[in-house]
Design a protein around this nucleic acid. Sequence first.
DNA 1: TGAGTATATTATAATATTGTAATATGAAAA
DNA 2: TTTTCATATTACAATATTATAATATACTCA
Lengths: 103, 103
Amino acid sequence: MKKQDRGLALKMGQKSEEVSAILKALAHPQRLLILCHLAQGEKTVGELEQLCSVSQSVTSQFLAKMKTQGLVSSEKRGLHVIYSIEDERVAKLMSSLYDIFCK
Amino acid sequence: MKKQDRGLALKMGQKSEEVSAILKALAHPQRLLILCHLAQGEKTVGELEQLCSVSQSVTSQFLAKMKTQGLVSSEKRGLHVIYSIEDERVAKLMSSLYDIFCK
DNA sequence: TGAGTATATTATAATATTGTAATATGAAAA
DNA sequence: TTTTCATATTACAATATTATAATATACTCA
């Protein structure tokens, strides 16, 4: 094993709880889609429901959990609640996923 | 929404089942660690057990499932079974995760 | 104020994942 | 050929996730 590789494994070991928790949030077809749309800009709950074909309740539950995790943030604007990606690492990850799986 | 962004969302929509299934495989602290070590080169089951502090049974179960998914492959060599990453996209993803979360 | 709209919350059943313990297999060494 | 070592498999209890349906909140507008 090369020196730099040992470093990689070590750092991953320290972070594996945090990183796997984030991956778990993305590890659902419709949550992944929700984040994919949010990666392109803020959206209301209703927009996400339609774009991703997820029920009102599930959309709201998913967003609430991801907000608790600090992955997204929300802002009330009139009747609507607008969500955006809060964790920059999630934004980067979505971009990598696009590069790896969709090009 | 920009044209290129609609493209991104569309492609992600088509792929979201497959991609989220792969993410699910990584979305566990010790499986992530296993893949992190495999990303640095082939390893025996016993090596992975020790490197990741996972029981024999669980290590084997995790590897079996990831093999069924096509993410890793195995080869018997003498007494040992050696695993490696089979899906190049997983290797790329591990590398991206390192860049995003460990730098 | 009252109706309608957008979102959140709760309870719950169905299903999936996780970890443990015990046992099985199969190759190599003694 | 029996033993030992490395890995795989199985059964199962504990826990977590998912989706649905029903209800609640809270804001806006007539």
